[in-house]
Amino acid sequence: MKYCAMKRRLAFLLAGLSGLLPGLLPAAEFDYALQARKVADGVYAFIGRTEDFTMENGGNIVNTGFIVAPAGLIVIDSGPSLRYGRQMRQSMTAQTGKSPVMLINTHHHPDHFLGNQAFADLPIGALPATVKGIAEEGNAFAENLFRLSGDWMKDTEVQVPNKTLAVGTSDIAGRRLRLIALDGHTGADLAVYDETSGVLFAGDLAFNRRAPTTPHADVTRWLAALDTLEAITREPGFTALVPGHGEVSRDAQPIRQTRAWLTWLQGALRRAAQAGQDMNEVLELPVAPDFAQWPQARSEYRRSVGHLFPAAEQGVLEGRY
């Protein structure tokens, strides 16, 4: 990974140079101004913006959260950078007077785990495939975020989870949690259901009024995972859903929206392939009116064409549909 390290140093150098030019610095203190919102008794979430990574937002485009357990705080995802992880840890300890005892990474996308360093003294748990994904792809992701978010990323290094999580319901730090292993957004997506409060942390399986991202998606598996999550929202104790991106919801709306987007996307790409369209033509197709107003709808659609059209096209050329 020598090559990556070199590039990283270059990114630092460039970020440093921009610091010399007044007015170009995005936020002098690199303060994410993190303020946890109460979702239920003992359950809080930091809600990020529904934007793409920029030099201004520093990658605060993601939702993270924590649960107040008898033994301390159980943290869910650590954000996009070391600065975020540190500020998040400080903010939740100040708010609750308790220290974190464990961090959980829902999946291996960089906005969810690059704050891990701030929790390196704790058990950091994830599904086995997530641990593997972070170990293998973490550096490349980090390099990309240095490019997109600049100095907000200063000193961020990949901290691979040190514990693989067993799924099922168990007492964690004295709180009853259900860990649900799913996949489809990535090869391993962990959802966390807090049995005490009825709050479901859905990770990036659910987006709320923000176009879903698909770089590692298997849409068919993802749709199946959404059915599993929606069943949980029908349980009598359910009170709230914290999506990976977008506002907290009191119902299954983010699940239904994500399902609607994915169903439309899969259908649109298949129809385009069946009509004989080339990727450049598919990139220009309109986003369905139901979603066109969502933040990032156009850019995520174009990205998804790159991620998913080759398979749709292959299916048509091989005569499978």
Partner: peptide, 18 residues
Amino acid sequence: VSGRQWSTGPNAGRLRLR
């Protein structure tokens, strides 16, 4: 090799090959 030709529709006359 997989491929298809389109003989109707807006892309009639088109051949795609993988």
